[in-house]
Amino acid sequence: MSYAFAVAAVFLLLFAIGVGRDRRRFGNAVLLGLSVTFLGIGLLAGVEDAPPGVAETVMICGLLVLGVGPVVLAGLLTANGVKMVRKEGRSPANLLSLLAGLGMFAVMVLAATAAATDSWALRIAVVTLLLILGYVSFLFVCFVGYAFLYGRLRLRRDADYVVVLGSGLTGGSRVPPLLASRLDRGREVHERLAAHGRRDGAPPVLIVSGGQGPDEEVPESHAMADYLLERGFPADALVREDRSRTTEENMLFSRELMERDRPGSSCVIVTNNYHAFRAAILARRTGVDGQVVGAPTAGYFLPSATMREFAAVFLQYKVVNLGTLGALILLGALVWASR
């Protein structure tokens, strides 16, 4: 028990150091997850010394969570996936929560089949699959947990720029509700920075960042600028970045504009809340001195959107992650071959 607490303390210390160096590192999420995991192990190991009845209660609750929890989660994901398809269409990105829910049901059926049969190969395959899912699930929980914490950081007051990231337009030229929420949040942040004031007296500038997609009539930044101007935003505080096609290009091209006009400047980047942590990781990678804040998103949209963001981050570290998955598959194959 004391060993688990000691390990948890070490990971917590490393987490604190990592956050102190840069809050936008995915490694911080993993260190926090490891610290919480070992803390939980230590607490569970100490249950046997608890007063009578506590150990039994904890065991029953644990069994309920392990037994009922996956079924409930799979059901909720499936229901959310159906709602996503009805509201947003059948694009691959919108199917993620539905596929995740159905996939969980399939794994449960496969595990029950393996337990009910004498197939050694099937049991090894199921155990290997569960190890893979355990690894991915651990990283996903780390991602969601730390993203939640990152989204609640205090807004910096010394930024020179506010950068609002673009997204797709409706009908090729209109700002959809998702993008409107970013623009409204960006305007709010700009007003707070302007009210606080800068030591050199220069007012903050808002950059709308987004190029023109193949199915769009105008660059996203132009539609975003029109949305703000129609609502009274001052034109002299607005700059358009209209070349970017990806979030990484949003960062790179916006950084060029900031460095051109105010070298060494800092910014607050605005996107939707599900996208904030990945945007922060990309800001760090592209050398942008920026804090990322999120705008509200419809609740039904969050599960699929969060899975999509996690998948993108997972593949950013593909050498480590795909290597780990390959090692688990190889381990399962070796166990099967030794049979």
Score class of each variant (00 low, 15 high):
residue 1 M to A: 14
residue 2 S to L: 15
residue 3 Y to M: 14
residue 10 V to L: 15
residue 14 L to D: 03
residue 14 L to W: 13
residue 19 V to R: 08
residue 20 G to N: 08
residue 24 R to P: 04
residue 27 G to Y: 00
residue 32 L to R: 01
residue 32 L to I: 01
residue 38 F to T: 06
residue 41 I to F: 13
residue 41 I to S: 05
residue 44 L to Q: 08
residue 47 V to G: 01
residue 50 A to S: 13
residue 53 G to I: 10
residue 61 C to V: 14
residue 62 G to C: 14
residue 64 L to I: 14
residue 73 L to S: 07
residue 74 A to Q: 05
residue 76 L to H: 08
residue 77 L to G: 06
residue 77 L to K: 06
residue 78 T to C: 07
residue 79 A to T: 08
residue 79 A to R: 13
residue 81 G to Q: 00
residue 81 G to I: 01
residue 83 K to A: 15
residue 83 K to Q: 12
residue 85 V to D: 02
residue 86 R to S: 11
residue 100 A to L: 09
residue 103 G to P: 13
residue 104 M to L: 14
residue 106 A to S: 06
residue 109 V to K: 01
residue 112 A to G: 13
residue 115 A to Y: 08
residue 115 A to R: 11
residue 115 A to E: 10
residue 116 A to R: 13
residue 118 D to P: 00
residue 120 W to Q: 10
residue 126 V to L: 11
residue 126 V to E: 09
residue 129 L to V: 09
residue 131 L to I: 02
residue 132 I to E: 11
residue 133 L to C: 12
residue 134 G to W: 05
residue 136 V to M: 07
residue 141 V to L: 11
residue 145 G to D: 04
residue 145 G to C: 04
residue 145 G to F: 02
residue 146 Y to G: 00
residue 147 A to F: 00
residue 151 G to E: 03
residue 152 R to M: 04
residue 154 R to P: 02
residue 159 A to F: 02
residue 161 Y to M: 04
residue 162 V to N: 00
residue 171 G to C: 03
residue 175 V to Y: 10
residue 175 V to D: 11
residue 180 A to D: 07
residue 180 A to P: 06
residue 182 R to Y: 02
residue 183 L to Q: 01
residue 186 G to S: 04
residue 187 R to H: 08
residue 188 E to D: 15
residue 190 H to T: 08
residue 194 A to H: 10
residue 200 D to P: 09
residue 202 A to C: 00
residue 206 L to R: 03
residue 207 I to F: 12
residue 209 S to C: 09
residue 210 G to E: 04
residue 212 Q to P: 10
residue 213 G to W: 12
residue 214 P to V: 13
residue 217 E to I: 14
residue 223 A to H: 09
residue 223 A to V: 12
residue 223 A to T: 11
residue 224 M to Y: 03
residue 226 D to C: 01
residue 227 Y to D: 12
residue 228 L to Q: 01
residue 229 L to D: 06
residue 231 R to G: 05
residue 235 A to H: 10
residue 235 A to W: 04
residue 236 D to R: 14
residue 237 A to H: 14
residue 240 R to Y: 03
residue 241 E to V: 05
residue 241 E to L: 05
residue 244 S to W: 06
residue 246 T to S: 14
residue 246 T to C: 06
residue 247 T to D: 12
residue 249 E to M: 13
residue 250 N to D: 12
residue 254 S to H: 13
residue 254 S to G: 10
residue 256 E to A: 13
residue 261 D to I: 03
residue 265 S to K: 11
residue 265 S to I: 09
residue 265 S to F: 07
residue 266 S to Q: 07
residue 267 C to G: 10
residue 270 V to F: 02
residue 272 N to G: 05
residue 272 N to K: 06
residue 273 N to A: 11
residue 273 N to H: 11
residue 275 H to K: 08
residue 275 H to I: 12
residue 279 A to P: 00
residue 281 I to T: 07
residue 282 L to M: 12
residue 282 L to D: 02
residue 283 A to N: 07
residue 285 R to E: 13
residue 288 V to A: 14
residue 289 D to L: 02
residue 290 G to A: 15
residue 292 V to D: 09
residue 293 V to Q: 11
residue 296 P to H: 04
residue 305 A to H: 07
residue 308 R to C: 06
residue 309 E to K: 05
residue 309 E to I: 03
residue 311 A to F: 10
residue 312 A to D: 02
residue 313 V to M: 00
residue 316 Q to V: 01
residue 318 K to M: 01
residue 318 K to E: 05
residue 319 V to Q: 03
residue 320 V to N: 05
residue 324 T to I: 15
residue 326 G to A: 14
residue 326 G to H: 05
residue 326 G to R: 05
residue 327 A to E: 04
residue 337 A to S: 12
